[in-house]
Design a protein around this nucleic acid. Structure first.
Lengths: 169, 169
DNA sequence: CGAATCATGTAATGCGTTACATGATTAG
DNA sequence: CTAATCATGTAACGCATTACATGATTCG
């Protein structure tokens, strides 16, 4: 099976948030706000928008020399479905989905945090297992110091993330 | 200019660490140790090794029905140069380079940590700036709660990373 | 009036993934 | 003896980046 594409959902989410956006505005968004979490160039955006329109996820209207897109009912459904798809070990998607949540009261918020918590806990356990497995003695640590460092760093990173999520829940 | 490729340097680093590796062994490495930080499939590895051999970075010899590769003097130079290239805002490359450092006494270790520290400090400042800029009032926070969350998360993440580096230095 | 920005598009290129393929050896 | 693993390769496909291209408008 081909790898799941993310761009269309990002576009859907962005247009949904703002109500209506042109291709140019979207490419500007990527230079600011969203740019911290995701990026796409205009040569990806324009054809993608055209495809999404053909698929019935968007409708367009011309205005002010720009083509603006709005999310259709079908598009809303597609976006909702994507938002509710289970998370995988991919922090970018977690960030994006969070980004698309507007209200603190949105029940999806807690759901996302809980999902991410579980994923990160599993990862933490895995990394801790690796540490024990690979670096059982001091000699191995000394002879693979960089590897040791980066593995312990990864563990601390996940711990920090878990703490943060637990804090928010 | 085309985007800098990383795979050849990863292969160089791996072969250098182990002394001698076959394509198959490398693809196995990606399923274990290195797999936590980088991945490549065999259909990338084999042609890449062939190219690197042609470029004079590697020499091969057949043994036990496998083709083993060793790093040439030229390859060592290329690897050293790459290891010393300034870091960019790319944690994967930082991890990889650390992974390739064997001895705690390697002067490159401190250099890498210091470089990464600077990059992360810059990023932290940038993110803190964004926070102030975008979320100046409570209303904005309430109306873009997910964005607020993920931005504060990113800030904490960078802070944690900086603390870790300072701890190691 | 010339440079920058707005606004949209297509083409070329490269990299990575998946799939297709094949032969040898080993383990159950 | 047959399934899994060893071991290497190529082909097809998709996606992203860069470059090429064009016309309108705005700002200095």
């Amino acid at each position: 099976m081909p790898k799941k594409r993310i761009l269309p959902y990002v576009l859907l989410g962005l247009i949904n948030n703002k109500g209506s956006l042109s291709g140019y505005q979207i490419s500007q968004e990527f230079k600011h706000e969203v740019g911290d979490f995701w990026h796409a160039s205009h040569s990806q955006i324009y054809p993608e928008l055209a495809r999404m329109k053909e698929d019935g996820w968007l409708i367009d209207h011309d205005e002010d020399k720009s083509t603006f897109y709005n999310v259709t009912e079908m598009g809303h459904q597609v976006l909702r479905d994507w938002m509710q798809e289970p998370l995988t070990d991919n922090e970018e998607i977690f960030s994006l989905k969070l980004y698309f949540i507007k209200e603190q009261s949105d029940p999806l918020l807690e759901d996302l945090l809980k999902q991410e918590l579980k994923i990160k806990q599993t990862k933490l356990e895995y990394l801790q297992g690796r540490l024990k497995e690979v670096f059982s003695d001091k000699k191995t640590i000394q002879e693979n110091f960089g590897h040791y460092l980066i593995l312990t760093r990864a563990i601390e990173r996940e711990s920090n993330h878990i703490q943060w999520i637990e804090d928010k829940l």
